[in-house]
Design a protein around this nucleic acid. Structure first.
Lengths: 202, 202
DNA sequence: CTTTTGACTTTGTAACTAAAAAAGTCAGAA
DNA sequence: TTCTGACTTTTTTAGTTACAAAGTCAAAAG
Protein backbone atom coordinates (compact mmCIF):
# COMPACT_ATOMS: atom_id res chain seq x y z
CA UNK A 1 0.00 0.00 0.00
CA UNK A 2 1.16 3.47 -0.90
CA UNK A 3 0.52 5.14 2.41
CA UNK A 4 2.80 7.55 4.19
CA UNK A 5 2.47 5.99 7.60
CA UNK A 6 0.67 3.59 9.86
CA UNK A 7 -2.05 6.01 10.99
CA UNK A 8 -2.99 6.94 7.47
CA UNK A 9 -3.53 3.32 6.53
CA UNK A 10 -5.63 2.86 9.65
CA UNK A 11 -7.81 5.76 8.57
CA UNK A 12 -8.19 4.33 5.08
CA UNK A 13 -9.34 1.02 6.54
CA UNK A 14 -11.79 2.71 8.92
CA UNK A 15 -13.26 4.74 6.07
CA UNK A 16 -13.69 1.69 3.87
CA UNK A 17 -15.23 -0.26 6.73
CA UNK A 18 -17.55 2.59 7.70
CA UNK A 19 -18.79 2.82 4.13
CA UNK A 20 -19.64 -0.88 4.05
CA UNK A 21 -21.08 -0.90 7.55
CA UNK A 22 -23.27 2.09 6.74
CA UNK A 23 -24.70 0.57 3.58
CA UNK A 24 -24.95 -3.11 4.49
CA UNK A 25 -24.47 -3.27 8.25
CA UNK A 26 -21.52 -4.66 10.13
CA UNK A 27 -22.76 -8.24 10.25
CA UNK A 28 -23.31 -8.36 6.50
CA UNK A 29 -19.86 -6.99 5.77
CA UNK A 30 -16.92 -9.39 5.58
CA UNK A 31 -13.30 -8.55 6.20
CA UNK A 32 -12.57 -9.87 2.71
CA UNK A 33 -14.92 -7.33 1.19
CA UNK A 34 -13.27 -4.47 3.02
CA UNK A 35 -9.89 -5.79 1.86
CA UNK A 36 -11.12 -5.98 -1.73
CA UNK A 37 -12.34 -2.38 -1.59
CA UNK A 38 -8.85 -1.35 -0.51
CA UNK A 39 -7.11 -3.66 -3.04
CA UNK A 40 -5.19 -5.37 -0.29
CA UNK A 41 -5.30 -8.74 1.38
CA UNK A 42 -7.51 -9.57 4.30
CA UNK A 43 -4.44 -10.42 6.38
CA UNK A 44 -3.30 -6.81 6.09
CA UNK A 45 -6.35 -5.62 7.97
CA UNK A 46 -5.29 -7.82 10.85
CA UNK A 47 -1.94 -6.07 10.90
CA UNK A 48 -3.76 -2.84 11.83
CA UNK A 49 -6.66 -4.16 13.88
CA UNK A 50 -6.61 -7.16 16.22
CA UNK A 51 -10.08 -8.27 15.10
CA UNK A 52 -13.24 -7.21 13.32
CA UNK A 53 -14.76 -5.91 16.51
CA UNK A 54 -11.89 -3.47 17.06
CA UNK A 55 -12.42 -2.17 13.53
CA UNK A 56 -16.14 -1.88 14.15
CA UNK A 57 -15.53 0.10 17.33
CA UNK A 58 -13.01 2.37 15.58
CA UNK A 59 -15.54 3.03 12.83
CA UNK A 60 -18.25 3.87 15.34
CA UNK A 61 -15.90 6.17 17.21
CA UNK A 62 -15.03 8.01 14.03
CA UNK A 63 -18.68 8.44 13.04
CA UNK A 64 -19.54 9.62 16.54
CA UNK A 65 -16.65 12.06 16.69
CA UNK A 66 -17.52 13.58 13.32
CA UNK A 67 -21.09 13.95 14.49
CA UNK A 68 -20.19 15.59 17.75
CA UNK A 69 -17.75 18.09 16.22
CA UNK A 70 -20.43 19.10 13.72
CA UNK A 71 -22.93 19.41 16.54
CA UNK A 72 -20.71 21.70 18.58
CA UNK A 73 -19.67 23.85 15.66
CA UNK A 74 -23.26 24.57 14.62
CA UNK A 75 -24.43 25.10 18.19
CA UNK A 76 -21.77 27.66 19.12
CA UNK A 77 -22.26 29.61 15.90
CA UNK A 78 -25.97 30.21 16.57
CA UNK A 79 -27.11 33.65 17.75
CA UNK A 80 -30.00 32.62 20.02
CA UNK A 81 -30.78 29.63 22.21
CA UNK A 82 -33.72 28.74 19.99
CA UNK A 83 -31.55 28.93 16.91
CA UNK A 84 -28.92 26.73 18.57
CA UNK A 85 -31.46 24.04 19.45
CA UNK A 86 -32.77 24.13 15.88
CA UNK A 87 -29.26 23.62 14.56
CA UNK A 88 -28.82 20.60 16.84
CA UNK A 89 -32.02 19.10 15.51
CA UNK A 90 -30.81 19.58 11.94
CA UNK A 91 -27.44 17.93 12.62
CA UNK A 92 -29.07 15.04 14.47
CA UNK A 93 -31.50 14.64 11.60
CA UNK A 94 -28.70 14.38 9.05
CA UNK A 95 -26.72 11.99 11.20
CA UNK A 96 -29.69 9.71 11.76
CA UNK A 97 -30.43 9.60 8.04
CA UNK A 98 -26.84 8.72 7.19
CA UNK A 99 -26.11 6.19 9.88
CA UNK A 100 -29.42 4.57 10.67
CA UNK A 101 -28.16 1.48 8.89
CA UNK A 102 -24.95 1.25 10.92
CA UNK A 103 -26.54 -1.66 12.74
CA UNK A 104 -25.04 -0.91 16.07
CA UNK A 105 -27.89 -2.84 17.54
CA UNK A 106 -28.04 -5.93 15.39
CA UNK A 107 -24.67 -7.12 16.67
CA UNK A 108 -26.13 -7.65 20.10
CA UNK A 109 -24.61 -11.11 20.33
CA UNK A 110 -21.20 -9.78 21.21
CA UNK A 111 -21.30 -8.77 24.86
CA UNK A 112 -18.19 -6.65 24.73
CA UNK A 113 -19.46 -4.69 21.76
CA UNK A 114 -22.81 -4.18 23.42
CA UNK A 115 -21.10 -2.80 26.48
CA UNK A 116 -18.97 -0.52 24.34
CA UNK A 117 -21.96 0.69 22.36
CA UNK A 118 -23.87 1.34 25.56
CA UNK A 119 -21.01 3.30 27.09
CA UNK A 120 -20.47 5.22 23.87
CA UNK A 121 -24.14 6.15 23.78
CA UNK A 122 -24.12 7.20 27.41
CA UNK A 123 -21.02 9.26 26.76
CA UNK A 124 -22.40 10.89 23.61
CA UNK A 125 -25.62 11.71 25.43
CA UNK A 126 -23.68 13.23 28.32
CA UNK A 127 -21.69 15.41 25.95
CA UNK A 128 -24.81 16.44 24.09
CA UNK A 129 -26.55 17.28 27.37
CA UNK A 130 -23.53 19.40 28.31
CA UNK A 131 -23.85 21.20 24.97
CA UNK A 132 -27.54 21.88 25.55
CA UNK A 133 -26.80 23.01 29.11
CA UNK A 134 -24.36 25.54 27.69
CA UNK A 135 -26.96 26.75 25.22
CA UNK A 136 -29.51 27.25 28.00
CA UNK A 137 -27.01 29.00 30.26
CA UNK A 138 -25.91 31.30 27.46
CA UNK A 139 -29.58 32.04 26.79
CA UNK A 140 -30.02 32.87 30.47
CA UNK A 141 -27.04 35.24 30.41
CA UNK A 142 -28.55 37.01 27.42
CA UNK A 143 -31.82 37.29 29.33
CA UNK A 144 -33.57 35.18 26.72
CA UNK A 145 -34.77 32.60 29.19
CA UNK A 146 -34.65 31.52 32.84
CA UNK A 147 -34.37 28.24 34.70
CA UNK A 148 -33.30 27.04 38.11
CA UNK A 149 -31.53 23.90 36.90
CA UNK A 150 -30.20 24.14 33.32
CA UNK A 151 -28.59 20.70 33.38
CA UNK A 152 -31.74 18.95 34.53
CA UNK A 153 -33.77 20.67 31.84
CA UNK A 154 -31.12 19.82 29.25
CA UNK A 155 -31.20 16.13 30.20
CA UNK A 156 -34.97 16.08 30.08
CA UNK A 157 -34.93 17.80 26.69
CA UNK A 158 -32.38 15.33 25.38
CA UNK A 159 -34.34 12.25 26.43
CA UNK A 160 -37.62 13.68 25.19
CA UNK A 161 -36.00 14.35 21.80
CA UNK A 162 -34.52 10.88 21.51
CA UNK A 163 -37.78 9.41 22.74
CA UNK A 164 -39.85 11.36 20.24
CA UNK A 165 -37.94 9.63 17.46
CA UNK A 166 -38.36 6.22 19.09
CA UNK A 167 -42.06 6.77 19.66
CA UNK A 168 -42.83 8.12 16.20
CA UNK A 169 -40.78 5.66 14.19
CA UNK A 170 -41.80 2.61 16.22
CA UNK A 171 -40.24 0.12 13.82
CA UNK A 172 -38.15 -2.96 13.93
CA UNK A 173 -34.47 -2.34 13.32
CA UNK A 174 -34.58 -4.44 10.19
CA UNK A 175 -37.18 -2.22 8.55
CA UNK A 176 -36.28 0.68 6.33
CA UNK A 177 -37.13 4.18 7.56
CA UNK A 178 -38.52 6.45 4.85
CA UNK A 179 -37.50 10.03 4.20
CA UNK A 180 -41.05 11.11 5.01
CA UNK A 181 -40.77 9.52 8.44
CA UNK A 182 -37.45 11.21 9.11
CA UNK A 183 -38.99 14.51 8.11
CA UNK A 184 -41.98 13.93 10.36
CA UNK A 185 -39.71 13.28 13.34
CA UNK A 186 -37.80 16.47 12.56
CA UNK A 187 -40.97 18.56 12.49
CA UNK A 188 -42.21 17.19 15.80
CA UNK A 189 -38.81 17.76 17.35
CA UNK A 190 -38.93 21.39 16.26
CA UNK A 191 -42.29 21.80 17.95
CA UNK A 192 -41.10 20.14 21.12
CA UNK A 193 -38.10 22.46 21.17
CA UNK A 194 -40.47 25.41 20.95
CA UNK A 195 -42.47 24.08 23.88
CA UNK A 196 -39.29 23.94 25.96
CA UNK A 197 -38.11 27.38 24.84
CA UNK A 198 -41.51 28.84 25.61
CA UNK A 199 -41.58 27.18 29.00
CA UNK A 200 -38.23 28.73 29.88
CA UNK A 201 -39.22 32.24 28.87
CA UNK A 202 -39.85 34.76 31.58
CA UNK B 1 -68.47 -25.59 33.90
CA UNK B 2 -70.80 -23.94 36.37
CA UNK B 3 -71.28 -20.70 34.58
CA UNK B 4 -74.54 -18.87 34.11
CA UNK B 5 -74.05 -18.13 30.45
CA UNK B 6 -71.73 -18.07 27.49
CA UNK B 7 -70.35 -14.58 28.12
CA UNK B 8 -69.41 -15.35 31.67
CA UNK B 9 -67.37 -18.38 30.63
CA UNK B 10 -65.68 -16.27 27.97
CA UNK B 11 -64.70 -13.77 30.65
CA UNK B 12 -63.34 -16.52 32.86
CA UNK B 13 -61.20 -17.79 30.02
CA UNK B 14 -59.96 -14.32 29.16
CA UNK B 15 -59.03 -13.68 32.80
CA UNK B 16 -57.13 -16.95 33.09
CA UNK B 17 -55.33 -16.31 29.81
CA UNK B 18 -54.49 -12.74 30.76
CA UNK B 19 -52.97 -13.94 34.02
CA UNK B 20 -50.73 -16.43 32.23
CA UNK B 21 -49.88 -14.03 29.41
CA UNK B 22 -48.97 -11.34 31.91
CA UNK B 23 -46.65 -13.57 33.94
CA UNK B 24 -45.11 -15.75 31.25
CA UNK B 25 -45.95 -14.10 27.94
CA UNK B 26 -48.34 -15.34 25.30
CA UNK B 27 -45.80 -17.47 23.44
CA UNK B 28 -44.77 -19.31 26.61
CA UNK B 29 -48.36 -20.04 27.57
CA UNK B 30 -50.07 -23.10 26.15
CA UNK B 31 -53.77 -23.60 25.69
CA UNK B 32 -53.48 -26.72 27.86
CA UNK B 33 -52.12 -24.66 30.74
CA UNK B 34 -55.01 -22.22 30.53
CA UNK B 35 -57.41 -25.15 30.45
CA UNK B 36 -55.74 -26.70 33.50
CA UNK B 37 -56.07 -23.43 35.43
CA UNK B 38 -59.79 -23.47 34.69
CA UNK B 39 -60.12 -27.20 35.40
CA UNK B 40 -61.57 -27.79 31.98
CA UNK B 41 -60.37 -29.40 28.80
CA UNK B 42 -58.40 -27.65 26.13
CA UNK B 43 -61.15 -28.43 23.61
CA UNK B 44 -63.54 -26.31 25.63
CA UNK B 45 -61.46 -23.24 25.01
CA UNK B 46 -61.94 -23.84 21.31
CA UNK B 47 -65.67 -23.81 21.83
CA UNK B 48 -65.42 -20.18 22.94
CA UNK B 49 -62.54 -18.96 20.81
CA UNK B 50 -61.70 -20.03 17.24
CA UNK B 51 -57.96 -20.05 17.98
CA UNK B 52 -55.29 -18.93 20.39
CA UNK B 53 -54.82 -15.68 18.55
CA UNK B 54 -58.45 -14.68 19.06
CA UNK B 55 -58.05 -15.33 22.77
CA UNK B 56 -54.85 -13.31 22.81
CA UNK B 57 -56.60 -10.41 21.11
CA UNK B 58 -59.56 -10.61 23.49
CA UNK B 59 -57.17 -10.53 26.45
CA UNK B 60 -55.35 -7.51 25.08
CA UNK B 61 -58.64 -5.75 24.44
CA UNK B 62 -59.76 -6.36 27.99
CA UNK B 63 -56.48 -5.11 29.45
CA UNK B 64 -56.64 -2.05 27.22
CA UNK B 65 -60.26 -1.30 28.04
CA UNK B 66 -59.67 -1.57 31.79
CA UNK B 67 -56.72 0.75 31.41
CA UNK B 68 -58.59 3.31 29.40
CA UNK B 69 -61.62 3.42 31.70
CA UNK B 70 -59.31 3.95 34.66
CA UNK B 71 -57.49 6.65 32.74
CA UNK B 72 -60.68 8.54 31.92
CA UNK B 73 -62.14 8.23 35.39
CA UNK B 74 -59.06 9.69 37.07
CA UNK B 75 -58.64 12.42 34.46
CA UNK B 76 -62.20 13.74 34.69
CA UNK B 77 -62.13 13.72 38.48
CA UNK B 78 -59.10 16.03 38.68
CA UNK B 79 -59.59 19.68 39.58
CA UNK B 80 -56.84 21.27 37.49
CA UNK B 81 -55.18 20.47 34.16
CA UNK B 82 -51.91 19.84 35.94
CA UNK B 83 -53.57 17.49 38.39
CA UNK B 84 -55.27 15.63 35.53
CA UNK B 85 -51.98 15.11 33.70
CA UNK B 86 -50.40 13.85 36.90
CA UNK B 87 -53.22 11.34 37.34
CA UNK B 88 -52.68 10.09 33.79
CA UNK B 89 -48.99 9.55 34.51
CA UNK B 90 -49.86 7.57 37.63
CA UNK B 91 -52.34 5.33 35.82
CA UNK B 92 -49.91 4.76 32.94
CA UNK B 93 -47.19 3.96 35.45
CA UNK B 94 -49.33 1.31 37.14
CA UNK B 95 -50.42 -0.17 33.83
CA UNK B 96 -46.86 -0.39 32.53
CA UNK B 97 -45.71 -2.11 35.71
CA UNK B 98 -48.49 -4.67 35.53
CA UNK B 99 -48.47 -5.43 31.86
CA UNK B 100 -44.92 -4.88 30.70
CA UNK B 101 -44.59 -8.65 30.45
CA UNK B 102 -47.62 -9.08 28.22
CA UNK B 103 -45.24 -9.68 25.38
CA UNK B 104 -47.34 -8.03 22.75
CA UNK B 105 -44.15 -7.57 20.83
CA UNK B 106 -42.53 -10.98 21.00
CA UNK B 107 -45.26 -12.53 18.89
CA UNK B 108 -44.12 -10.54 15.91
CA UNK B 109 -44.20 -13.64 13.71
CA UNK B 110 -47.92 -13.56 13.28
CA UNK B 111 -48.72 -10.86 10.76
CA UNK B 112 -52.37 -10.57 11.61
CA UNK B 113 -51.65 -10.16 15.30
CA UNK B 114 -48.99 -7.57 14.58
CA UNK B 115 -51.48 -5.61 12.52
CA UNK B 116 -54.07 -5.86 15.27
CA UNK B 117 -51.61 -4.81 17.93
CA UNK B 118 -50.50 -1.88 15.80
CA UNK B 119 -54.07 -0.74 15.19
CA UNK B 120 -54.94 -1.20 18.85
CA UNK B 121 -51.97 0.91 19.85
CA UNK B 122 -52.84 3.60 17.33
CA UNK B 123 -56.38 3.56 18.58
CA UNK B 124 -55.42 3.70 22.24
CA UNK B 125 -53.04 6.55 21.52
CA UNK B 126 -55.76 8.42 19.63
CA UNK B 127 -58.15 8.03 22.54
CA UNK B 128 -55.53 9.10 25.01
CA UNK B 129 -54.68 12.12 22.89
CA UNK B 130 -58.37 12.99 22.83
CA UNK B 131 -58.40 12.75 26.62
CA UNK B 132 -55.40 15.06 26.92
CA UNK B 133 -56.94 17.46 24.41
CA UNK B 134 -60.02 17.65 26.63
CA UNK B 135 -57.85 18.32 29.65
CA UNK B 136 -56.08 21.16 27.87
CA UNK B 137 -59.32 22.64 26.57
CA UNK B 138 -60.91 22.48 29.98
CA UNK B 139 -57.79 24.15 31.37
CA UNK B 140 -58.16 26.87 28.75
CA UNK B 141 -61.81 27.43 29.68
CA UNK B 142 -60.82 27.82 33.30
CA UNK B 143 -58.19 30.35 32.21
CA UNK B 144 -55.44 28.11 33.56
CA UNK B 145 -53.59 27.92 30.26
CA UNK B 146 -53.72 28.96 26.61
CA UNK B 147 -52.87 27.35 23.28
CA UNK B 148 -53.79 27.78 19.64
CA UNK B 149 -53.98 24.07 18.85
CA UNK B 150 -54.82 21.85 21.85
CA UNK B 151 -54.91 18.64 19.83
CA UNK B 152 -51.50 19.19 18.31
CA UNK B 153 -50.01 19.91 21.72
CA UNK B 154 -51.75 16.86 23.16
CA UNK B 155 -50.32 14.60 20.45
CA UNK B 156 -46.85 16.03 20.97
CA UNK B 157 -47.18 15.54 24.72
CA UNK B 158 -48.34 11.96 24.25
CA UNK B 159 -45.44 11.00 21.99
CA UNK B 160 -42.90 12.76 24.18
CA UNK B 161 -44.22 10.84 27.20
CA UNK B 162 -44.14 7.47 25.46
CA UNK B 163 -40.73 8.31 24.06
CA UNK B 164 -39.35 9.32 27.43
CA UNK B 165 -40.03 5.82 28.67
CA UNK B 166 -38.47 4.26 25.57
CA UNK B 167 -35.41 6.47 25.83
CA UNK B 168 -34.86 6.00 29.55
CA UNK B 169 -35.46 2.28 29.72
CA UNK B 170 -33.54 1.44 26.58
CA UNK B 171 -33.66 -2.31 27.08
CA UNK B 172 -34.31 -5.39 25.11
CA UNK B 173 -37.83 -6.75 25.50
CA UNK B 174 -36.49 -9.90 27.08
CA UNK B 175 -34.83 -8.02 29.94
CA UNK B 176 -36.57 -7.35 33.21
CA UNK B 177 -37.37 -3.75 34.10
CA UNK B 178 -36.72 -2.90 37.74
CA UNK B 179 -39.01 -0.95 40.03
CA UNK B 180 -36.33 1.72 40.34
CA UNK B 181 -36.35 2.19 36.57
CA UNK B 182 -40.13 2.47 36.49
CA UNK B 183 -39.94 5.06 39.23
CA UNK B 184 -37.26 7.00 37.38
CA UNK B 185 -39.42 7.15 34.26
CA UNK B 186 -42.35 8.38 36.33
CA UNK B 187 -40.31 11.19 37.86
CA UNK B 188 -39.05 12.37 34.50
CA UNK B 189 -42.54 12.24 33.07
CA UNK B 190 -43.77 14.46 35.89
CA UNK B 191 -41.09 16.99 35.07
CA UNK B 192 -41.87 16.90 31.38
CA UNK B 193 -45.54 17.48 32.19
CA UNK B 194 -44.55 20.55 34.19
CA UNK B 195 -42.55 21.87 31.25
CA UNK B 196 -45.63 21.56 29.05
CA UNK B 197 -47.96 23.09 31.63
CA UNK B 198 -45.57 25.97 32.16
CA UNK B 199 -45.24 26.50 28.42
CA UNK B 200 -49.01 26.79 28.09
CA UNK B 201 -49.43 29.30 30.89
CA UNK B 202 -50.20 32.87 29.99
C1' DC C 1 12.80 -3.71 10.10
C1' DT C 2 8.12 -2.71 8.65
C1' DT C 3 4.50 -4.09 5.83
C1' DT C 4 2.10 -7.39 3.01
C1' DT C 5 0.45 -11.82 1.51
C1' DG C 6 -1.31 -16.70 0.23
C1' DA C 7 -2.29 -20.64 2.37
C1' DC C 8 -3.79 -22.36 6.41
C1' DT C 9 -6.78 -23.41 10.84
C1' DT C 10 -10.54 -22.25 13.71
C1' DT C 11 -14.96 -20.47 14.57
C1' DG C 12 -19.62 -19.15 13.56
C1' DT C 13 -23.77 -19.49 10.87
C1' DA C 14 -27.41 -21.06 7.86
C1' DA C 15 -29.75 -24.80 6.00
C1' DC C 16 -31.52 -29.46 6.89
C1' DT C 17 -33.69 -32.94 9.70
C1' DA C 18 -36.01 -35.65 13.13
C1' DA C 19 -38.30 -35.66 17.55
C1' DA C 20 -41.17 -33.37 20.66
C1' DA C 21 -44.61 -30.15 21.88
C1' DA C 22 -48.22 -27.41 21.12
C1' DA C 23 -52.21 -26.03 18.20
C1' DG C 24 -56.30 -27.26 16.46
C1' DT C 25 -60.43 -30.88 15.14
C1' DC C 26 -64.24 -33.82 15.80
C1' DA C 27 -67.45 -37.60 16.98
C1' DG C 28 -69.88 -38.48 20.60
C1' DA C 29 -71.02 -38.00 25.81
C1' DA C 30 -73.27 -35.17 29.45
C1' DT D 1 -76.01 -26.46 24.19
C1' DT D 2 -71.78 -27.38 26.39
C1' DC D 3 -67.96 -30.20 27.11
C1' DT D 4 -64.38 -33.87 26.46
C1' DG D 5 -60.84 -37.65 25.15
C1' DA D 6 -58.65 -39.14 21.46
C1' DC D 7 -57.10 -37.76 17.34
C1' DT D 8 -54.47 -35.06 13.33
C1' DT D 9 -51.82 -31.16 11.86
C1' DT D 10 -48.69 -27.56 12.53
C1' DT D 11 -44.97 -25.32 14.88
C1' DT D 12 -40.76 -25.41 17.83
C1' DT D 13 -36.77 -27.02 19.13
C1' DA D 14 -32.55 -29.53 19.44
C1' DG D 15 -29.10 -31.75 16.98
C1' DT D 16 -26.28 -32.14 12.74
C1' DT D 17 -23.65 -31.04 8.93
C1' DA D 18 -21.59 -28.11 5.31
C1' DC D 19 -20.11 -23.87 4.05
C1' DA D 20 -18.56 -19.20 4.81
C1' DA D 21 -16.25 -15.99 7.35
C1' DA D 22 -12.94 -14.95 11.11
C1' DG D 23 -8.57 -15.13 12.44
C1' DT D 24 -3.23 -16.97 12.21
C1' DC D 25 1.31 -17.41 10.55
C1' DA D 26 5.62 -18.36 8.07
C1' DA D 27 7.63 -16.35 4.60
C1' DA D 28 8.04 -12.78 0.80
C1' DA D 29 8.56 -7.94 -0.61
C1' DG D 30 9.93 -3.39 -0.11
Amino acid sequence: MMTENRDEMRERIIDAALKRFTYYGASKTTMSEIAEDLHCSKASLYYYFPDKQALHIAALEKAGETYFLDLREKATAAATARQALMELIAVRHEFARRFCRLELFKVLKDKQLVRFAHEAFENAREREIKLITDIIEKGAERGELVTADPEKVAALYMHAMIGLRLSLVNKDISEEISDAEFERVREWQVQLADIFINSLKK
